[in-house]
């Protein structure tokens, strides 16, 4: 378009920047992951079958799956309770602003907050011990997958509250009243109307939470110092040379993460299409 060469300059610059620093690294990883000393090789992907990496993937997947599910359910219930039409206004303001903070309170500070609370020397741990409940003796550990799930919930639940709020707000009170008026119980309303209407949003939120937890690195790193293998911490171990493995393995791990996210997204797209046959557009 001759009218606006400057427009194309800006659009071009942005796309070129993304191509070079975002797409190219991703492609680079794929190349690196199959590039052996003597041409193409699958040895790096084969290395993903090692016990160490199998555990890392299963840890990452189960942690993401659980924390996303916990986040969707708990966050959904909180958002719903707060958005009830006759809930006090101040409560809504408190929950909204707190959620905005807590959803961004991931990483190192969060890990330390939980260590100070529920670590083996944490305040809550000692307090419970003094009344006869020894958490670590009954199998709990902050530095396990269930401990990580608990810590991740601290930012996953608020994130859910934030992203599901618009969808819950869009539910019209007249649907509920119409259902009631037609003789439906509260359970029947939720089964036939409420949940089906929310389903696409819930699914999208779950995916977002899954990705959020799957790619999280700082929290787990600060909490476990790499003792609990996650895919992200394994990649960082390769990158920083803490373990003796070739860069190709790190690349293969990264490609594995990308593929996982693409598969999860593809499945969710399929489910979403089925769940939202009635949605406009």
């Amino acid at each position: 378009m001759p009218k606006a060469p400057i427009a194309w300059l800006f659009i071009g610059a942005f796309l070129a920047f993304c191509a070079f620093f975002l797409a190219a690294p991703a492609v680079m990883l794929m190349v690196q992951s199959v590039d052996g000393d003597d041409g193409l090789t699958l040895q790096y992907f084969a290395a993903l079958g090692d016990y160490r990496y199998r555990v890392a993937f299963s840890h990452s997947l189960s942690l993401s799956f659980t924390s996303a599910t916990v986040g969707v359910i708990a966050g959904g219930l909180i958002a719903f309770a707060v958005l009830k039409p006759d809930a006090p206004r101040w409560l809504r303001a408190v929950v909204t602003s707190f959620s905005a903070v807590a959803a961004n309170f991931a990483g190192v500070p969060l890990a330390f907050a939980f260590i100070a609370t529920l670590g083996s020397l944490g305040l809550l741990t000692s307090m419970l011990k003094s009344i006869g409940i020894d958490l670590y003796a009954i199998g709990f550990s902050l530095f396990s997958i269930s401990g990580l799930t608990l810590v991740y919930s601290y930012f996953q639940i608020p994130l859910m509250v934030i992203i599901i709020t618009p969808a819950i707000r869009a539910m019209r009170p007249s649907w509920r009243e119409a259902a009631e008026n037609l003789g439906a119980s509260s359970g029947q309303y939720w089964r036939l109307v409420g949940l089906p209407v929310l389903a696409p949003s819930l699914l999208a939120a779950w995916i977002l939470l899954f990705g959020n937890s799957f790619s999280a690195y700082a929290t787990a790193y600060a909490l476990t110092s790499g003792n609990i293998g996650l895919v992200t911490t394994e990649i960082s171990a390769v990158l920083s040379g803490n373990v003796v493995s070739e860069p190709g393995v790190g690349a293969a791990l990264s490609v594995g993460m990308i593929v996982t996210m693409v598969v999860v997204l593809a499945i969710s797209q399929m489910l979403a299409r089925r769940a939202s046959a009635w949605v406009k557009g």
């Binding site: 019209r172 007249s174 649907w175 009243e177 119409a178 259902a179 009631e180 008026n181 037609l182 003789g183 439906a184 119980s185 036939l192 109307v193 089906p196 209407v197 009635w278 949605v279």
Partner: peptide
């Protein structure tokens, strides 16, 4: 309200958006 057997028509947008016209009508 659910025990009174009254039919109500609201101002607008009260149809269940996830159901066809037929499913809306047979809801009761």
């Amino acid at each position: 309200a659910s025990e009174r057997r009254m039919g109500m028509v609201f101002q607008s947008y009260s149809l269940f958006p996830n159901m066809t016209a037929l499913d809306n009508v047979r809801f009761g």
